[in-house]
Design a protein around this nucleic acid. Sequence first.
DNA 1: CATGAATGAGGATTCATTCAT
DNA 2: GATGAATGAATCCTCATTCAT
Lengths: 213, 213, 213, 213
Amino acid sequence: MNARSTTPRGKPQSMRMRMKEEARAAILDAAEQVLSEQGQAARMDDIAARVGVSVGTLYNYFEDRQQLLAALRDTRGRELLALLDAELERSLQNPYRARLHGFLRCILEHSQTHFRLLSLLLEDSLRRDASREEDLDRHLEMWREVSLRLEHLGEQGIQEGALRPEDAPHYPGLLLDMMYGLVVRQLLAKQPSPTEALLAPLLRCFLEGAAPR
Amino acid sequence: MNARSTTPRGKPQSMRMRMKEEARAAILDAAEQVLSEQGQAARMDDIAARVGVSVGTLYNYFEDRQQLLAALRDTRGRELLALLDAELERSLQNPYRARLHGFLRCILEHSQTHFRLLSLLLEDSLRRDASREEDLDRHLEMWREVSLRLEHLGEQGIQEGALRPEDAPHYPGLLLDMMYGLVVRQLLAKQPSPTEALLAPLLRCFLEGAAPR
Amino acid sequence: MNARSTTPRGKPQSMRMRMKEEARAAILDAAEQVLSEQGQAARMDDIAARVGVSVGTLYNYFEDRQQLLAALRDTRGRELLALLDAELERSLQNPYRARLHGFLRCILEHSQTHFRLLSLLLEDSLRRDASREEDLDRHLEMWREVSLRLEHLGEQGIQEGALRPEDAPHYPGLLLDMMYGLVVRQLLAKQPSPTEALLAPLLRCFLEGAAPR
Amino acid sequence: MNARSTTPRGKPQSMRMRMKEEARAAILDAAEQVLSEQGQAARMDDIAARVGVSVGTLYNYFEDRQQLLAALRDTRGRELLALLDAELERSLQNPYRARLHGFLRCILEHSQTHFRLLSLLLEDSLRRDASREEDLDRHLEMWREVSLRLEHLGEQGIQEGALRPEDAPHYPGLLLDMMYGLVVRQLLAKQPSPTEALLAPLLRCFLEGAAPR
DNA sequence: CATGAATGAGGATTCATTCAT
DNA sequence: GATGAATGAATCCTCATTCAT
């Protein structure tokens, strides 16, 4: 506000905006927690209580319950894509197999953290209301983005001679299916196995096949 | 109903019981339809309307909503297991690969028919209420039964030299994951591909691997 | 249900329907009472309590609050028109002045009974939402019907030489305005005057004018 | 605020007070606009937005919503009375009929401008809460003031021989009723007629009566 | 057994009002 | 004085469940 202010310079309103952003993020985090625990049964009051604010406040940040859910989906989606892109960047010089491993680990970790939310959104998307059409689209769009990156990676695999080209279009789907299933089974199991212990056989099976060579 | 009944001898109440069973089945079918269309949002009234009876009647056949859901789960589960056992029996003399193919096709077809219900129940099971603990168990139990059969089948595969034994414990899970994912993607896709076109690459990938030999 | 039933014959469901109709009417009556006392602030719970049922029941009879209001408007409107038509019929042989008096008394009495509701609906209609457009139309329609009858009556007045024809189009409006105002002032007054004491000077003023002859 | 103030003599705080008064007036204007458009549904936020300030500010000028409404009522009431008194003063030398015409035109014009507010306040006053008792009184008081002036005017009419004395007590009421009704019908009509075209027949009817002489 | 009206606890949403900045 | 985020009581509406007929 003035030259003596300790805040460097510029962004005069940025503090207020930053707080607003943080509040939004806090709400989204709480919402995810509560939704994870209670599924669609989670009440707005529960979410508010988790953040430590009152219901009304939620509605200062999100139009309604549906918008809150949508924001959660979009935020988490963007986060995953950012993670994946960072990982792809980081491993740029590595061979296909290593990069794939890293890529999948990223997805796995993110999905583990956010799985309940994920499955909730999936379930939601499967309900075919005209009113949810747009929600479904946004959800699919996100996974298309992930598939796209897997396809790109697959091209490297093919060039390295590590992948058979014929079935290439199926690979992203199959890989994602196995990842999703992995997470589901980890959640359902009383004592989940460590990620790496599940990822390795998956990759081995995917690349080498189940049949002996 | 009385001595003058036209049904000759024996099982005097069996007709009544048969009718009762048929009514139950009709309710379950309607329930599945409505749940598939509307998800958890399906109301008891909707289900009753679909069967063509009034709500009250539903409660003559099922304790409450939760029991109805449970009955649906159990019924469909038993149906699937029966299908699978029949298929295994039928293909008893065939080689591993063919039997696996048949087995998976069974699952796939059943899952396609009942997928919305399946995902609903899954979602339900993921909610960690103390009150649902038992539901979760029953749900897992069912899939354990399926896995068990896959393991059995796997043993044949190993003996035939068609499967590497090291990762054998992971195979049922991975296969089921891919099946589940397949169904999900078919549902989400606007124009679903034919089953066989998806199953073949899946099996090829599973057995031979994605890498060229 | 069978030939021996004491209910003559026919209308097999009419008892159920009759009860349903009576329930609807009871709800409308209660709604009018409560709305009269509390205006738009009347809560659905209040109305339910007045009928002696629970909220849910209201929603078995009316879509929502707005529909209930609309039903109230239409019912009372139809009742008024029926009263007026009966009065017009009854007085068919009488001279204009007497018929007008009777007609206005009908309106006045009906309006006194239902005034609060009336003013509520008027107030509602004055709010120019696109969503209420239809409500407004129905409201106006009703008063157009009343005006129409006043115009008809006016024609008799003109033929009898009791009305000047030049201003005839204005008379229905002016008369209704005065009626409405009369009711308002009766309500606002702590000790309302008897109807007849107000109606007579009104008619005198309307027909003879305020100026001495 | 203090002797050193630059404002020369007198009213040292008057500038501050003037600004305060203007702010109040601005709020009242905005409130009336919004209330006219949305009725009781108008929210404090809407009003604030219309003035271009934030909600909090409204509460610096008015205790609460009810006080704001009351202030609006009183202000508009005083304005009307001032208008009427000015008109009466202006027309002091004119004959009764002309003065009455001017008087009514004043009311009509004021009511047209502020009608929605008026009907809102009326509706409000009709709600018989103990809590609103005082509001009702103030509202009636205002109209009594108007009636009083009409009575005064009527005395002139009687002395001029333009009014029959017998019904004199009823005239103010009947006239006001007709005015109110006029405005209502103008508002409800899709295409309102010009004021003068409605006022003339009204006066003619009132003074000469509807019957031919 | 079937019916379907009644129940009422429960949840999403709104909005007047407060108060820390 | 102005701001506007936070508050939470209040209200509409839903729907699983019951029970008299």
